[in-house]
Structure formats: structure tokens, C-alpha cells
Write a protein that binds this DNA or RNA. Structure first.
Lengths: 162, 162
DNA sequence: TAACTTTACGTGATGGCGTAACGAAATGTC
DNA sequence: GACATTTCGTTACGCCATCACGTAAAGTTA
């Protein structure tokens, strides 16, 4: 969901699968457990909430949603712990320019990702472009800079909001 | 200061001038006044503080520094107002992944800028690379996304901290 | 099962980042 | 000088993020 192939602008043509809904949750579960981590009720609830929105949401938003859904207060603290794990495990991605988190629709596949974040509707297109990645890393290399994590986010207007 | 030419990794070879210290402040003053804005004592103090550090600093850091320097409390609120103006006028740049601001060492010249932010020492190299800019904008265009503001930041280790 | 260790979660507190609202002071204009 | 505009001070508030510490659950070993 919300991933596209950069060359065509249409549905993803990546070799790896895209997932959504229950299928995506099952895939996330598999990936996390393969890493030797537990798949708890709380973690599933957080991931499901991320997947449900399909766009960047804040830790506080998730805390509020889950507080309602569970009928008892869930502290942002707990959400952050889980989000940190998700990001470290590549199940979720952090959008720096929005201070928000997004479910990775193809967990288990690492790559430099690019977000096209719409300033109007908040939608974030998650793109994977080899040329951009190569160009950016090459630039860093020429500057003798050791790249750990490229933050590539383009703020603007999505095709629905132009 | 802290700008480099992307092809060589050495001192800037841009057609536009780099500035530093008093010269940079004078240039900033000129640019802002050309836009019909006032160059007040407070604004000069904020810009001077940005220029003095030469690396990304938070609005709160600036507020604290100026509070000490002026012997009376300066609220972050006032700093943000001025920083917003600086960013809108291209006198300063915002580093999203650090929630911090940096003096633009060649104000008056707009371009997509790339930051190489060192996770160790906090230094932020400000680079301007035509190929990266073109590649990124082309990607957005293929996705039918209207680019307003590319956020291109590479987190990692600078050449001094590797 | 019991004792123990490890991991996950709950809770309260705290600090950094950022903005809204409103009034006072300074600046520019006539 | 009177007036409008812009800038700044002040208070308050809300969101983002982490620390410290205690409880509970899950896994381990005997």
C-alpha cells in the first residue's frame, strides 16, 4: 500500500512482495520472531494501528487510539519502546520531517527509502529508487562521509492534492 | 564555512561567494533588507549566534545563549519568530533530523541543499549537488508529486570522526 | 513445581521542541 | 504629533521523547 515503482508511477514492481492488512501483520510477525523477538499482544496492536492508517502517525496518536480500544490508558512511553524496536527491526519507518511513524509494507527488505510527503493530506508515498540511492551515497563518499542513514524526504503535494 | 564542493570534497568552488563572521552577517543584513524586512538588534543577535556556532543549534540553545549575553531572559518564542523569518528568507536552514537551525553561508542563493550530519560531533556539512538535486526531483516528477521542499540529510560520521 | 533470570509492560516525572494569544514597545508614515 | 504597522516580551499550553523504577509475564533450569 502506498508504495509505487519510481519508473512508472504505478503499482509496485519490486521483486519483493508488498503486503497489506492481516497479511502484512502476519509478515511483520514472522520477521520479528525470526529475529528472536517476541510478538506480544501489545506489539501486534501497535503494528496493526500503524498498518491501519497507512500513513505516518505519531506515537501519541497511537497511544490515544489504543487507550480507547483497550478501555485503559496506554502511555506514549510504551508506544515509543515498541516503535523503537520496530524501526530497529525495519518493521516500521520514521519520517523525520513529520515526527511520525509508518508501517513498512515490505518488512525484511532493507533499502534506502524515499518519502514523498504531502503537506496537504499527510499521505506519505514510500519509494525505493536505486539511482537516487546511488547518487546520494556517492556524494557522501566523495565528501569522505560515512553514510549510516540517509534521510530522504520530499515535502510537497501529492497527485490528489495538486 | 563548512560548505564544500561535492566533486572534490575540498573548499567551495561555487560561483557564489561563501561568507563567514562579520562579513556573513553583513551579507545577511543586506539580503534581508533587500526583502523589505527590518534588521533589528534582536535579529542580528540571533543570526550572529547561528553564525558563531557554524553548526546546527536549537532555538532553545540560542535563547539560552542570548539570555546570558543580554543579562535578561529571552524567550524561545521570540527566537522561533526570527528563525522562521530567516528560513523563509533563506538566511538560515532547518535540519529536520536534528530539530535545529544553521546559518546559510551564502544567503540569497536558493538551491536544494544536502546536509551530511555527523552523529558523533554534530557537525553538519552543507553540500549543494546538482546531480542529486536533479535525480531527486526527477523521481518526484515521475511519481506525479509536486516538489516544494526536498529534505536531504545524511546521518553518519564525518571524516574527523570515522 | 519451584526458584531464578530475562524480557516486556505500567507508571510517574522530566526535559526538549514548537505555537497560540495578547499586550507593550519600537518603528515607519502621514 | 497622531496613527498604523511591525517587532518583541510574556504567559500559557501542547506535542515529542526519554529516564527511572517497579510490576508482570515469559522463558530457563533444576
Amino acid at each position: 500500500m502506498h508504495d509505487i515503482d519510481s519508473a512508472t508511477g504505478t503499482a509496485a514492481l519490486h521483486p519483493h512482495e508488498d503486503h497489506s492488512g492481516p497479511e502484512l501483520i502476519a509478515e511483520a510477525r514472522r520477521v520479528l520472531m525470526d529475529l528472536g523477538e517476541q510478538w506480544t499482544t501489545m506489539r501486534e496492536a501497535v503494528f496493526a494501528e500503524l498498518a491501519r492508517h497507512g500513513r505516518p502517525v505519531s506515537a501519541y496518536d497511537i497511544a490515544d487510539s489504543l487507550s480507547v480500544a483497550r478501555g485503559k490508558r496506554v502511555a506514549p512511553n510504551s508506544i515509543y519502546r515498541i516503535l523503537d524496536l520496530f524501526v530497529a527491526s525495519n518493521l516500521a519507518l520514521r519520517v523525520e520531517s513529520s515526527n511520525a511513524y509508518l508501517a513498512n509494507s515490505h518488512p525484511g527488505h532493507k533499502h534506502d527509502c524515499i518519502f514523498l510527503v504531502c503537506d496537504e493530506c499527510g499521505e506519505a508515498l514510500h519509494v525505493d529508487d536505486e539511482e537516487v540511492s546511488r547518487t546520494v551515497r556517492s556524494l557522501a563518499s566523495r565528501c569522505r562521509f560515512k553514510t549510516e542513514r540517509p534521510v530522504l524526504e520530499i515535502r510537497g503535494l501529492c497527485r490528489s492534492c495538486v
